[in-house]
Amino acid sequence: MATAPAWTPAEPLIRIADVHKAFGAVTVLSGVSLEVMKGEVICVIGPSGSGKSTLLRCINALVPIEKGSIQVEGQEVNDPKLDKLALRRKVGMVFQQYNLFPHKTALQNVMMAPVHVLREDKAEVEARARRLLKKVRLEGKEASYPGELSGGQQQRVAIARSLAMNPDVMLFDEVTAALDPETVKEVLVTIRELAEEGMTCLIVTHEMGFAREVAGHIYFTDRGVIVEHGPPKEFFANARDPRTQQFLSQIL
């Protein structure tokens, strides 16, 4: 956008300010503000239905917002003239239900978007896709179809698929919620490696142990607002708000 001010890494990569969103009569977000700096790992926790997933979908414009502002690298997402495709190239997203394309192999799943959306050279993309699959420990599964893979393997293909677009930030939407307990770990390990490499991550999760370990900052949402936030040590040790205390006592 010509009107967008130049963004520098010193400013927040994602800046969410007073965002409101309702589905019909149901209010999902009522004044959420949050900032993510480049290289930061943010975890958002909170009870089901508190608007966490909706917040993520607002960031890459899958869901429009009614009021407030969301900026990704200085670009206003709520702008009607927004180039959605340009935004989505910067923002990778991984879903709870993986949503892999069942008619394509793991390798093809990873290659599709760079080849057809970014129109990159096929041989180059293939080399990158193989590298990414290796990185998520799926070497040898390139030719497997999603139906032939376990949930954890599918989710790691989905992570590789998203990474293939070379995004600046990754959004994880309860990516382990649909997995068997024994496969949860392999996915979390993959995400932690990404975080350690400096990838900016915004993670919605129910895995408290993981959040404590990986997050630089934790946000707790309930009924469409951010109740409390802070560094994990402080957040888990001395939660001040009664709602947070109650939630943590139920989970931990």
Partner: peptide, 17 residues
Amino acid sequence: PFGQWEASEALAFSRRQ
């Protein structure tokens, strides 16, 4: 499933693609 549309959208595919 709707998730197929959502995932494609998030990967910057156009509706036609």
